[in-house]
């Protein structure tokens, strides 16, 4: 495994150096500075905004909501949140569409609302169903307990 790891590092460094060389040699300093600013902004945007936001929502949700609801809400949040980020360019009015009637040729806000509504509906129905199953299981188990003595200790 040492050889594989060493090989990966060597090839990785070569690719990294080649990519860096390409950036330096194909872009003017101002363009390079802009690309670097963008990269740093992307990291700050994620590490200081998106991640803490997700963290805070998770922290609140985990404490304020019953487990079944929290579970469904987390699934919905992951699906809806990531899809919304993917959809930013088409939802954003700055993208070029006007001159070309075959580009950005849908009602994206309507489509986004539709998908988000479907995600919420599906996860809510899933949560309700699993809640019912849970309750059914529990009432079954408690009846079983009455017949067979005290509840066995778990873990």
């Amino acid at each position: 495994m040492v050889h594989i790891r060493a090989g990966l590092v060597v090839v990785g460094l070569i690719l990294l150096a080649y990519g860096g060389w390409l950036l330096l040699h194909t872009q003017r300093p101002a363009q390079l500075a802009q690309a670097t600013t963008w990269a740093l902004a992307a990291v700050v945007l994620h590490d200081a905004l998106i991640a803490p936001l997700a963290l805070t929502l998770g922290w609140i949700g985990g404490r304020a909501l019953p487990r079944t609801v929290a579970r469904a809400a987390t699934v919905a949040f992951v699906l809806a949140g990531t899809l919304t980020i993917v959809a930013i360019p088409v939802l954003d009015g700055y993208a070029a569409g006007g001159a070309n009637h075959t580009l950005l040729d849908r009602d994206y806000v309507g489509g986004w609302i539709l998908v988000i509504a479907l995600i919420l509906l599906t996860t809510a129905v899933g949560a309700a169903a699993s809640g019912l199953v849970h309750r059914f299981d529990r009432s079954h188990r408690s009846r079983g307990r009455m017949a067979h003595g005290p509840r066995p200790r778990r873990r």
């Binding site: 990519g19 950036l23 872009q27 101002a30 690309a35 070029a96 580009l103």
Partner: peptide
């Protein structure tokens, strides 16, 4: 989505960054 919010060359930066 043809949303060009930058002055650098998309094609070249996308290609070079891939290696990075």
């Amino acid at each position: 989505a043809q949303w060009y919010a930058w002055d650098f060359s998309f094609k070249r930066v996308h290609y070079a960054l891939a290696f990075v």
